[in-house]
Simulated scan of single mutants.
Amino acid sequence: MADVGGIGDAGAERIAEFVRPLRVEPGSLVDLAKDFDPRYKAHLDKQDAADLLRTGVELLSEYQTRLAAQGTHGVLLCLQAIDAGGKDGTIRHVMSGVNPQGVRVSSFKVPSSEELGHDYLWRYACRLPSRGEIAIFNRSHYEEVLVVRVHPEHLDRQRLPEEARGPALWERRYRAVNDWERYLSDNGFRVVKVFLNLSKEEQRRRFLQRIDVPEKNWKFSAADVRERRHWDEYRQAFSEMLSATSTEWAPWYVVPADRKWFARICTSAVLAHTLMEIDPQFPVVGEEARRELLAAKLELEREEP
């Protein structure tokens, strides 16, 4: 790999090595409670953390420019987390060094009546990236096997025909999502998925902070505590989702989220690593275009005072 932004192969390899333990191996059986520690921080000290984040942001900035210039690939970053997992802050910090014109963030709340009139993937398909663009889903199509699974009453609003229900519903959705992501990958759109893994105790602490600090009251809703009562059900749904949908073409990365600074470093590294794998290049102009450039240069130089 060529030197990018002065970082070189060593920095790129460090990014690749850093994200490797976070990746959910396709076909593996995940148990979140046993397999991933929300407080893991890879023995980084503050200086290492700052250096790694800088490297990740610099790589993102350079590769985003290349991605837009080449105009053949797009990248979709899916962020999933339990409430207070830090999705908004992660997006804000990770994308701090990129051109906002090349990034689109979509948040998915309760579906509208129009969205419910379509298949469950329709509203997500409408927000996919263009070629040369990075799209971020703040929550994503995986809500359809998480919230809807924990609260099956939501299926009633989707007005599914009777034959589309039943015990095999979730396996069919896993298969459909995998096939959809494979289709996107085959057409030049890379899908990378990050689960911010927050502990129950850290969620409790963040909820209390949102209540105690007036400037954060707006972030808190009583519904958050009601959802917390389903903690075990969500952990089981997340574990099954990770097991069933981490694929070679669209892998999941489980990012420890109890330390916000570390979650941001991990997400930055994962996204940078994805762009490194694409390795977009600046287009090389043809001979005719080159002659036009030289003619334009000559005309401009003649105007020199």
Rank of each mutant, 00 (worst) to 15 (best):
G97W: 03
G97R: 09
G97H: 07
V98L: 13
V98Y: 05
P100Q: 13
Q101G: 14
Q101I: 01
V103M: 07
R104W: 03
S107N: 12
S107P: 11
S107C: 02
F108K: 07
K109I: 00
P111S: 09
P111M: 05
S112H: 06
S113M: 03
E114R: 15
L116I: 09
G117N: 13
G117C: 10
D119T: 11
D119K: 08
D119P: 00
Y120H: 05
W122A: 09
R123L: 04
R123D: 09
R123F: 04
R123Y: 08
R123C: 08
Y124P: 05
Y124V: 02
A125S: 09
L128K: 02
L128N: 07
P129V: 07
P129T: 10
S130E: 15
R131C: 04
G132L: 12
E133Y: 07
I136Y: 01
F137V: 01
N138Q: 10
R139F: 08
H141W: 15
Y142D: 10
E143R: 04
E144L: 06
L146P: 00
V147C: 04
V147L: 15
R149H: 13
H151E: 12
H151A: 10
P152W: 09
P152A: 15
E153C: 03
D156R: 13
R157N: 11
Q158W: 12
R159Q: 15
L160T: 10
P161E: 14
E162R: 12
E162V: 10
E163A: 11
R165H: 09
R165P: 00
G166N: 11
G166Q: 12
P167E: 15
P167R: 11
P167Y: 12
A168C: 00
A168M: 04
A168Q: 14
L169G: 00
L169E: 01
W170V: 06
W170K: 07
W170M: 07
E171F: 02
R172G: 10
R172W: 12
R172S: 09
R173H: 07
R175S: 14
A176R: 11
V177Y: 01
V177M: 15
V177P: 00
N178P: 03
N178I: 02
D179I: 03
D179S: 11
W180E: 05
